[in-house]
Structures are given as structure tokens and as C-alpha cells.
């Protein structure tokens, strides 16, 4: 592997068990891997294989039952709730399946949200950063549109801009294309590939196996364990795939 690159994420025998009544659900049964700066990793697996549980660990929303997780060199397991909130604010960008934008709120304000919880930003700096992030996802002309005035694809772009705005160490996406049609899904993939090219580290959870073709690495989960971890040496261009799609019938 690319040993000269900086390690952003390191998991060491991470286990996550849930106690449901008298039963113990073993959602993660010991996961270890490293993710380097600038990787575009897809995580795949059947439903219930533990993808979301893993992503919650990576996103510092949850702590492991056992094992250790280092984010950008910081051990997360022993952190308090507030420390993890702080870490999420500074080092992580989330993209959710159903966008999760604030209703009745403009794109800029939605994107500003993470910076609202960072006192280092002034109002002007916040706005500037938000506009830059929106321009990066191709929504420079939709700054003042409210969330209910936009298409699903546009809303997801706003959500991606929100994930970018705090210049996170890693962008985490859970089924970010799950609610979108094929064409719009490809548009998102084009965007993620662009972000990847720009140097962002991305972890993209999906149950669509085709998407692995466009990422630099693919991790397959099954029953809370890694079944396969492959580097993709032949990354396909999502832009080309998008161009090859049949044009929408608008005659």
C-alpha cells in the first residue's frame, strides 16, 4: 500500500455489540483497516452486514465496544460526548441518504450550519466558506434557494457542500445516492470523483456493487467482518458513464 501517505483513519479490532433484551447482536466483529489521505473508499455489503454501524464509528457518533479507532491520529474510544461532538465538527463531513437539510432555510444557511458550531468563524467568514463550498458542488447560482425549492439532486449537492465546508479530514456518505434516479446518481458520482481528484478523502457506503468501479478502493463487509478489501487500479470515469447514459426524453 501507499506507505508514504498520511493515515487518516485507523481501526484496530473494532467490535460493536448491541444488547437487545437478553440477546447480543454482534454488528461489528473485529474490523481493522487503515485509510490513507486522498483515498475514495466504497464500503459494500448486504443489508444488515454492519455498514451503517461502521460508518457511525468512523463518524464518531458512536464508540466501539472494544478495539481502538484513531481519527487523524486522535484515539476516539475514550472521548467524552462533547469531545466527540467537537471532533465531528472539525474533522468530519457527513452526507446522509435523505439529505437532512433544515426546512425553510436557504442553501447558504444550510451549508453554514457546521461552522455555526465553530466560534473561530465570523459571520462573514462563514458565508464566504459556504459560498465557496456551494460553488464547488456547482450550485453557485442557487445560494438563496430554500430547501423546498430544489430538486433531490440539488438538495444532495447542498448536503455535500455542507460536508465540505469545514474542510474535514474525511467525508462520510451513507447511501448518498440511494434516493436519486440513475442519472442524478451518476451526477453525484461525478462530483465525488471531482472531490477525490481535489484531494479529499471519501468513504462512501452503498449496496450498489456497480459504484465500486468509480472508487479507488472497495471494502466488502459480511456479518460484521471484512470479507474483501481491494484496491481499484482501474478507476472508471463517472463523467463518461454519465455521457453514455440514454438522454432523457424531452422531445
Amino acid at each position: 500500500m501507499e506507505n508514504n501517505k498520511k493515515v487518516i483513519i485507523e481501526l484496530d479490532q473494532v467490535k460493536r455489540y448491541f444488547q437487545v433484551g437478553s440477546e447480543t447482536v454482534k454488528a461489528l466483529r473485529g474490523i481493522s483497516f487503515k485509510i490513507y489521505e486522498g483515498e475514495f473508499v466504497t464500503i459494500q455489503g448486504t443489508s444488515g452486514s454492519g455498514k451503517s454501524t461502521l460508518l457511525n464509528q468512523l463518524g464518531c457518533l458512536d464508540t466501539p465496544t472494544s478495539g481502538e479507532y484513531y481519527l487523524d491520529g486522535v484515539p476516539v474510544k475514550k472521548m467524552s460526548k462533547n469531545q466527540r461532538a467537537h471532533l465531528r465538527n472539525r474533522k468530519i463531513g457527513f452526507v446522509f441518504q435523505n439529505y437532512n437539510l433544515l426546512p425553510n432555510t436557504t442553501s447558504v444557511e444550510n451549508v453554514e450550519l457546521p461552522l455555526m458550531y465553530n466560534n473561530k468563524y465570523s459571520a462573514a467568514q462563514r458565508r464566504e466558506a459556504a459560498i465557496k463550498a456551494l460553488q464547488a458542488v456547482g450550485l453557485g447560482d442557487r445560494l438563496e434557494h430554500k430547501s423546498n425549492q430544489m430538486s433531490g439532486g440539488q438538495m444532495q449537492r447542498v448536503a455535500i457542500a455542507r460536508a465540505l465546508v469545514n474542510t474535514p479530514a474525511v467525508i462520510l456518505a451513507d447511501e448518498a445516492t440511494g434516493n436519486l434516479d440513475t442519472r442524478t446518481s451518476f451526477e453525484m458520482l461525478v462530483l465525488f470523483q471531482k472531490l477525490h481528484k481535489d484531494g479529499h478523502t471519501i468513504i462512501f457506503v452503498t449496496h450498489n456493487p456497480d459504484i465500486a468501479r468509480y472508487s479507488s478502493r472497495n471494502i466488502m463487509l459480511r456479518d460484521g467482518k471484512i470479507r474483501e478489501d481491494t484496491i481499484n487500479t482501474n478507476i472508471e470515469s463517472a463523467a463518461e458513464a454519465l455521457a453514455a447514459l440514454p438522454k432523457p426524453q424531452d422531445d
Binding site: 463518524g59 457518533l61 460526548k81 462533547n82 461532538a85 467537537h86 465531528r88 465538527n89 472539525r90 457527513f94 446522509f96 437532512n100 433544515l102 450550519l113 457546521p114 458550531y117 465553530n118 455542507r162 469545514n166
Partner: peptide
């Protein structure tokens, strides 16, 4: 609830 979850995910502490 959803808004609260989102705010927490992007870094709001329970106190805030």
C-alpha cells in the same frame, strides 16, 4: 428530532 440529530452530527453539543 431530525433537526436535533443533524445539529449534533455536525458538532452541536447537548448543552448547546
Amino acid at each position: 428530532t431530525k433537526e436535533i440529530g443533524l445539529r449534533m452530527a455536525v458538532g452541536a453539543t447537548g448543552f448547546v
